[in-house]
Design a protein around this nucleic acid. Structure first.
Length: 335
DNA sequence: AATGCGGGGTC
DNA sequence: GACCCAGCATT
């Protein structure tokens, strides 16, 4: 394949077809970095509201660094993968103490929450550094243009993709445009189902198109493990002027977040004293959480270990809660 | 190299 | 129900 023409086609297509996204108006490191963190494993439509609120609340890295972690988490509430918010905040403090943003991709990658993908994205867009981004979109595009049927879950396959993309980006006029073009192509044209091959700028550089192979077979991805089923029973006291919360352990799901006190298992510890006011199923990538919320009216005696508990007044914003609990508490407050 | 980590959208 | 998403840190 002629990499030079491939790269040119991607760049030209990107310049003429890119979506109007906030950080593209003026791609400064802060706005690009923030966007890359928000949109890790998160589709643009899903994360855009959070991104805009974060930029408004923290217009500069100094504002972000000076905020409390709780405030950052509150703005992250509902986005998931909450370690991203904590690492973002930590990195902001490091940038502030250095009094400068990193310059090279290697420097960016040394910050918490920034791996090979994010470092390449920021350095290519903000500093014209020719390092290829390899995300889910890029792997889909390359698996099709090069008819690669290896499992994209495997690290070796991702390394192969990175090698191919890095060869192509050497021909880029603006590496940032090539990287964003590859991802944009995967997001808009070379979609998982029913790709719009007629609108593709690298149609004639595509092994699948040229050989009339079925794009639904590419990329190949091995099956995910089945979800673990869990049953969580949460306690809520509707007659109190506060919500009693307990901080979750630092490991596992919703690490370090405040939750309603709960016990896990088929049996509820609150069955005798409470009434079931809500139950639901919350699906995560790897867990199927059946949750039950019991109204115990009042907290007659508080739990023994006092240290991890918090009384959150109902007339003030609550700490960041996981989605199912946030929905329940918000609905109660709005009654 | 494998695993865990959220939540929403689509078909 | 299955799959996907501007991945990373940890083990």
């Amino acid at each position: 394949m002629n990499d030079s023409i491939f790269t040119q086609n991607i760049e030209n297509w990107y310049v003429n077809n890119k979506r109007d996204l906030p950080w593209r108006h003026n791609p400064k490191p802060y706005l690009v970095w923030l966007a890359e963190i928000v949109f890790q494993q998160t589709q643009i439509k899903q994360g855009m509201g959070h991104y805009k609120r974060l930029v408004e609340a923290f217009p500069t890295v100094e504002k972000l660094a000076d905020a409390s972690e709780d405030d950052v988490l509150k703005l992250w509430e509902g986005l998931g993968y909450y370690a991203r918010a904590r690492n973002l905040h930590k990195a902001a403090k490091l940038i502030q103490s250095n009094d400068a943003f990193p310059k090279t991709g290697k420097e960016w990658e040394s910050l918490p929450g920034i791996g090979p993908y994010t470092a390449a994205a920021i350095a290519s867009v903000c500093a014209n550094e020719p390092i290829a981004c390899v995300d889910g979109n890029v792997m889909r595009v390359l698996s099709r243009t090069h008819a690669i049927s290896d499992d994209i879950r495997a690290g070796t396959t991702q390394a192969l993709m990175r090698k191919i993309a890095n060869e192509k980006i050497q021909f880029a006029e603006h590496p940032g445009n090539f990287n964003q073009g590859m991802m944009e192509l995967g997001a808009i044209i070379c979609t998982p189902k029913k790709p719009n091959c007629n609108a593709c700028p690298v149609q004639h550089q595509c092994a699948l198109y040229n050989n009339q192979l079925d794009p639904s077979l590419y990329p190949f991805k091995s099956k995910a493990k089945p979800r673990i089923k869990r049953h969580l029973h949460f306690a809520f006291a509707s007659n109190e002027p506060f919500v009693l919360l307990r901080r979750n352990p630092e490991k596992g799901i919703w690490a370090g977040l405040y939750l309603l006190p709960f016990n896990e298992g088929k049996e509820s510890a609150f069955k005798k004293t409470g009434s079931l006011v809500k139950k639901g199923k919350h699906l995560l990538s790897h867990q199927e959480i059946h949750y039950y919320i019991w109204d115990i009216k009042t907290w007659k005696l508080l739990p023994d270990d006092h240290t991890d508990y918090k009384h959150a007044p109902l007339d003030k914003p609550l700490p960041a809660l996981p989605v199912p609990l946030k929905k329940f508490v918000d609905a109660f407050v709005n009654l």
